[in-house]
Amino acid sequence: MSESPITRPQSRREWLLSDAPQTRRQARLGAIYQGWLTFRANKLAMFGLIILILLIFMAVFAPWLAPQSPFAQNLAGRLQPPSAEHWLGTDALGRDILSRLIHGSRITLFIVGTVALIAPIIGLFIGTVAGFAGGWVDQVLMRITDIFLAFPKLILALAFVAALGPSIGNAVLALALTAWPPYARLARAETLTIRHADYIAAARLQGAGPLRLLIRHIWPLCISSLIVRVALDMAGIILSAAGLGFLGLGAQPPMPEWGAMISDGRVYILDHWWVAAMPGLAIFIVSLAFNLLGDGLRDVLDPKGAKE
């Protein structure tokens, strides 16, 4: 129970890993650094993270990275196999597939990012309120969730897009609206286990109202498992977005959305495999990266794993 006086200058690592942080900032940074060390120990997750960083890099610098314009048509050089000039070949309109993939990463990231932001927030809100309030509030909210869950995701998204009109914004909205119910379920389940915990009772005895309990005490504990779940669901979201694109209900031509690109290549799949295969490969790699990242995040954020 003694405070260890600082007798020599600490290294930055020691400062971060200190069990006796002196300031709020040190405590926060220390907690983050601990998490980072856990994450770093998971080699596959690091691999996923590197891929995703590359993807973001690609999206940000797309105009400079892409060898050609994603829209430049060249009917004379259509359906060229991969070559030195066109690394990944060209599509039916003679556009460079590599350039389209690089620009398409922006669209993919936009879709994924927006859905990943909207769906868990709706889910968190509905789930925690239902779990915390209980009674009829819980009944009503959970039955609504059930209704959404009763439809296959893609069909429901299709219905939304059909009603709202095909566009990339509507595709995002539709995906977000269909993706939240599992998060609501998860958040509710977490809330149910937390709400009878002694620390909630203690906060209640301090005079904390329901809103404060929800936001300050329950949300921080639900968010970590939601983040893990979102990272693991990302692959599914990318695939759904690609599915909508494939069906012509997402990004509209000539936007280089990966799903739409596969759809374009479908006609030539037997003779000119690369047109469909390259965007397919891109989707596969990014989905995999998100899954690996999710695994690593689970190591860091899952409270059950966080023992001494």
């Binding site: 709020r24 405590a27 915990a197 002694d198 620390y199 009772a201 203690a202 906060a203 005490h217 921080p220 504990l221 409270p303 966080a306």
Partner: peptide, 9 residues
């Protein structure tokens, strides 16, 4: 072990 919020300093 159960009466302190695990994420609160």
């Amino acid at each position: 072990y159960a009466s302190l919020h695990p994420r609160h300093s």
